[in-house]
Design a protein around this nucleic acid. Structure first.
Lengths: 208, 208, 208, 208
DNA sequence: AATGAATGAGGCTTCATTCAT
DNA sequence: CATGAATGAAGCCTCATTCAT
């Protein structure tokens, strides 16, 4: 009767939240519109008042992913040290109440990108923006000076993002029972190892 | 019931070859059995003589992927230097006449793994085997001594595979027109950069 | 529940006007209630305040058609000559600002009549009334004497209405660009030819 | 087991026969694919092996209608007298075991033509061909000389077809119980009346 | 009176799978 | 061994209708 606070605020959000769960659990094309509507607790038809069709839902998910990555990037840019920036970037997807959801979604997004030009363009754009941001971050950080073997900031950023994507793929292999905290710990380990490798000068002690 | 060794083996290969093309082009669940049969130039029914159902085809693809990775690993182990081993590992998927096919397939495989336990187990197993192999390779190589910051071989292997997977994901974003050679070049660049980072002592000159 | 006379009458008209446009453009069953509400510039729900359901709208359209035909008949009866009466009957549907609308609607009405008893009864009734009117008109007109081959007034009326309906069907085949004036001209040609055939004695000159 | 003689000869025909029944009974857009498959005694999916989609079924029906009209025209052209030619044209749709089916279908076809360009073109083409054929028939017949009031053959044909279409529309108003024979009788009455009007010289006795 | 969000049944279409030949 | 016609469940989407505001 009375508009439920949590969900009614934005049907778009509600539907996309449900879609994330379904897409992560079953994949873009295995998740049915009925699955999504059930997860959202609404009728199928209602989805079509907010999205033209299923592809539009997928696109909107991709768009939202883009905005979320921009958010993460912004937070990373405000971190006091480069290491902390990287930690934010590498653990952004572990903070959810539903761990692994995001990883599975992103891997699916890349899979979709390989055959859906619209999605490919968007993902490439997100990636480029994020990499530019990190390249900047590196260029301005004091650690950049100690960059090993004359690697340029953008080359470092490229490596960092490769590792980040690679860890995401690995994440989907983890048994579902693994908690967000455990995933986070693993991500942090690799992050610090990578940071230490890329930015710690030879004579500093390794990250404790 | 009894699978004729000689011929069935051919058919299996023929069907799986077709499936690779279809799966890469359209995804596991978007590719239809008819697509596969058409690509293979046989009838739909015939596929069911060799595979119980579509899931079995996917599983067989995963199995074949496992064997192929083992092949690659074996070749990598026989390379004279660690750098060359890594080059083999990082460019294995670029040699095909149909570039990007393998990348798309592998990304799809991980996506599938996130919701299909059987596939997840297999992929995890492949990954573990390959990582063990590379860990060994590193442990035995002279470069291991110069490993920076006391990173242990298995930690180095973990980083290497993370980068490898990450590059694979990136590969699916490349425009379809990019040739195998171009992809290979890009992979080699990153491989050498990574090798240089991990295994070249500070005072050696960077890879030319 | 109680239908306010003044306003509901307006609303009825407004909705039926919109329905005519939609039905003609897309057919009874292809036009959605939303189409009609949009065309009328009101909300969907409002239609249900004035009509029980979609079938009721169709029925009301049929009813209005009946009244309009009665109007036309009345005007035809007041024309000074039989030829002019026929001209009114044959061109009644061309005077609209939206030519072809009425033709398409009437053809649809007959199509609907073939499977909707309620509509069939109504259309048959309209037809009978109109034919009776014209039969009378003929019986009283001086031209009736020169009727060829002893055709009786009601037989002549039957022919006239057959031609009239036939011309309506033809009208829907005309390209949409044809203007009301052009349609009218064509109708008049046939009307005069028919009149000349039925009512001009052999020795009179043909209609100029 | 063994291919049933009657139906397997041509699935296309079988499906179109079923579609005629359904379309006539419920209209193009009210008849569901399920209705058609049930009427044909096959599964829904099978229809899609023979027709790309529902529109293709409608188009095929229209095409078949075209061929049938051509058949009728051919038969009409071989009739010994003009009157008999007209009788064939006017009663072609009454010979079916399912009277009124064809009338309803044709009226629906015209209704569809008013909003489906593809159908409109086809119907216009059929009409033109048939009218040309009849125009010829008239021009060559001895009765043409006694044509009243100098009406040219193509004008006579136009009138004849208008009446024919008009009678078709009337036919759909007949109660479903009316038999093919009764419909036929009525059509013949009008045909002869029309023929008598158009082609009998003034001093000949009216058709008995 | 008026709105338009919401529902859910039903229509079109696809596709994994079977089976007669 | 091989084919491909056939099935029918299931997915996407539309739309008549209702109802809280």
């Amino acid at each position: 009767m009375s508009q439920p606070q949590t969900e009614s605020s934005d049907r778009h959000t509600q539907i996309l939240d449900a879609a994330l769960v379904c897409f992560a659990k079953r994949g873009f094309h295995q998740a049915s519109m009925h699955d999504i509507s059930a997860e959202a607790g609404i009728s199928v038809g209602l989805i079509y008042r907010y999205f033209e069709n299923k592809d539009a839902v997928i696109s909107a998910m991709a768009d939202r992913h883009k905005r979320e990555i921009h958010e993460v990037l912004k937070r990373a840019q405000q971190a006091p040290t480069l290491l902390e920036s990287l930690e934010i970037l590498f653990t952004a997807h572990c903070c959810e109440d539903a761990p692994q959801l995001v990883s599975a979604f992103v891997v699916d997004l890349y899979a979709e990108a390989s055959r859906n030009q619209r999605v490919a363009d968007l993902v490439r754009d997100v990636l480029q923006t994020a990499m530019n941001g990190v390249t900047d971050l590196i260029a301005r950080s004091p650690e950049a000076d100690s960059a090993p073997r004359g690697l340029k900031p953008h080359e470092l950023a490229e490596l960092i993002f490769a590792v980040s994507r690679g860890m995401l793929m690995r994440d989907v292999l983890q048994p579902q029972e693994m908690t967000a905290a455990e995933r986070r710990t693993r991500q942090l380990e690799v992050t610090r190892r990578l940071w230490s490798l890329l930015f710690k000068s030879e004579n500093e002690p390794a990250y404790a």
